[in-house]
């Protein structure tokens, strides 16, 4: 029974890694789990989604402004990137990098496009991680 669970977990994680959702930082978080914080990863991911939702909202609002405040966007995205990379959200991190590149070049369309993609990944990862954490 336990073996099956392990296998299931392993498979899920493997797919998350294989699909590029996560990177080694996620493993690092798992390694931090101990008897004091047995659900540390879940705790952190929950924290991440709670806090980053605010950032996502801020970015969304800022993207509605005209002209775009790229400095502000870049600042928000910097924060978002810091959080995302801390939990090993590889895809999101890459989107952040992309977004900031667009900010740097003043590419408003690129920013918006990347942000849409980012939100998609953001939601997808959340779903996958929730599923992952549901495994006992």
């Amino acid at each position: 029974m336990e073996r099956n669970l392990h296998k299931q977990l392993g498979n899920m994680k493997k797919s998350l890694f294989d699909q590029g959702y996560l990177d080694e930082q996620f493993i690092q978080l798992e390694e931090l789990q101990d008897e004091a914080n047995p659900n540390f990863v879940e705790e952190v991911v929950t924290l991440y989604y709670r806090d980053s939702a605010r950032l996502i909202q801020n970015i969304e609002q800022t993207l509605e402004n005209n002209p775009l405040d790229f400095a502000k966007l870049d600042n928000y995205m910097h924060q978002f990137k810091g959080s995302s990379c801390s939990i090993g959200a590889k895809k999101l991190k890459n989107e952040c990098t992309q977004f900031r590149e667009h900010c740097k070049t003043g590419n408003g369309d690129g920013c918006k496009r990347t942000f849409q993609q980012l939100k998609k990944e953001y939601a997808a990862l959340k779903k996958k991680l929730e599923h992952y954490f549901q495994v006992p």
């Binding site: 392990h6 392993g10 498979n11 493997k14 493993i27 798992e30 390694e31 789990q33 008897e35």
Partner: peptide
């Protein structure tokens, strides 16, 4: 990715840290 490895890490980490 070697799931086994990560799994091992997962369980091992507890031990090591406690130690």
């Amino acid at each position: 990715m070697n799931l086994a490895g990560s799994q091992a890490v997962k369980s091992m980490s507890v031990t090591s840290s406690s130690v």
